[in-house]
Structures are given as structure tokens and as C-alpha cells.
Amino acid sequence: MTSPQTILYARVSTSDQTVEHQRSQAEKAGFTLDQVITDDGVSGLSVPLKDRPGGRRLFDILRQGDTLVVRWVDRLGRNYQDVSDNIREFIRKGVIIRTVINNMTFDGSTQDPMQMAVRDALIGFMAATAQAQAEANREAQKAGIAHAAQVEGKYRGRKPSYTQEQLHTILGMTGSSVSEIAKLTGLSRQAIYRIRNDPAAASAALQSWSQT
């Protein structure tokens, strides 16, 4: 019988995201990784986990007692039904799912009905949040593109101090404090406040500078 493994799943969907960054975040959080499985350039909103090459591999190799590590549940997907179904399927197999952001754990070890109800409600909430944030990011990006088109050829202001991945991280950590986000992203508190207060403008700044 093989020993339980700890496997990081890293989904990369934009040019600013990297597998190495997700790996280093996990290692800094204290995870010792046996394998890293990736999907590069794959949408989490329109492509189900089982239809991605890396996602299919997860279902093939994960066994009871293994730990699946993800930066946050949005790496598994951005579709509510897909994310919640996959998390429940993994925990039925005896796989423990842990997130780097907020250090959350989902497993099937408890048999207490109340704890199971709380766990399942939390899974549903996290999956719904992942989809809602994807849609919010998409709207912010649309607004940013429109704004960038309006100001093209004009003064664009200072180049943003953050990347697209950092922007997505900040918008995704809705329940986290500014201090927690600053520690994770390395950005200043002031930059995080500006992004939170006007995500469309933050996206617009990135879009404007990306056109050069």
C-alpha cells in the first residue's frame, strides 16, 4: 500500500499567473508537495474539471488519505455546480482538500450530522463565491477595456504596481482582512484599498498599460 500523497493542483488561465507562484505560495504556507499537476490556459468557468487534462489526472491518481492542495477553490473551477460536485466526489473518495488562502480544509472524516451539514453548506458557499467572483472579474475587465479604449493616446497615469494575478487574488479574498491580503500578495495596504474600492478602474489601468 502506497503512502498518502500531497498533490498541488495549479490552474493557470492568464499570462500573469504562473505555476511556480502557486507552488511557492503553497510551500510558504507549510505544504510539502509530492506532485504538482497543472492545467495551463484553461478557463475555470467554461471547462469542467474532468474535461481538463490535469483535472482528469487528478481523478485518476487521487486515493483515500491523499491531500489535494489548491491556492483557492477557484483553481478547481469557477462554475458553482462543477466545483461543488467535484469537491464532494473527492471527499467521498477519502481525499482531503486544503486551500492555501484562508487555510480551509474539506474532508469526509466526520460522521456527525451537524458537522456534515456545516461542511456541505460551506462547500456550496465557496463554490458560489468562486462563480460570482469570476463574473465580477469579467465585468471589471470589460469596464477596464472600455475605459482603456477611451483614454488610448492620452496620459495613462502611473504604471500599476500589481499584476493581473494579484488583482484577481484581491478580488477573490472578499472575506479576508487587508493585512492578510498584503502578506499574501506583497502589495501595500493602500494599493489593496484602491483596488477594492474601484476594481473597474484597477482593471482599466492594467488594460491601458498592456496596450504598449
Score class of each variant (00 low, 15 high):
Asn79Trp: 09
Tyr155Phe: 11
Gly65Gln: 04
Lys50His: 14
Ala205Arg: 12
Ile123Arg: 05
Val100His: 04
Val100Ala: 01
Tyr155Ser: 10
Ala134His: 11
Pro48Asn: 05
Ile37Glu: 03
Asp120Trp: 02
Ser15Gly: 00
Arg98Phe: 07
Asp107Glu: 12
Leu62Ser: 03
Ala140Leu: 03
Ile101Gln: 03
Ala128His: 10
Leu187Val: 01
Val69Thr: 03
Glu27Ser: 11
Val47Ala: 03
Phe90Cys: 04
Glu165Ala: 14
Trp72Ala: 10
Met126Lys: 12
Arg78Trp: 05
Arg63Asn: 13
Arg189Leu: 11
Leu62Pro: 01
Arg78Leu: 12
Arg78His: 11
Asp40Trp: 08
Lys154Thr: 12
Ala134Ile: 01
Lys159Ala: 15
Lys183Glu: 15
Gly186Asn: 05
Ala148Phe: 08
Lys142His: 12
Met126Ser: 10
Arg196Ser: 11
Thr169Asn: 08
Leu184Thr: 08
Ala204Asp: 07
Asp120Asn: 14
Ile123Tyr: 05
Gln133Met: 12
Val95Cys: 04
Ala149Asp: 15
Ala148Val: 08
Ile37Asn: 01
Val100Tyr: 08
Pro199Trp: 00
Lys28Asp: 15
Asp112Lys: 06
Asn102Ser: 15
Ile96Asp: 02
Leu76Trp: 05
Val36Ser: 06
Met104Arg: 10
Thr169Pro: 03
Gln115Tyr: 08
Asp39Phe: 02
Asp16Tyr: 12
Arg138Val: 00
Glu180Trp: 01
Gln131Val: 02
Gln164Glu: 15
Ala204Lys: 01
Ala148Leu: 08
Arg158Lys: 14
Ala10Pro: 05
Ser15Leu: 14
Val19Ile: 15
Phe31Arg: 01
Ile87Gly: 05
Met1Thr: 13
Met126His: 09
Gln133Ala: 09
Leu167Val: 01
Phe59Asn: 06
Arg119Lys: 11
Gln115Pro: 04
Gly186Thr: 00
Thr14Asp: 15
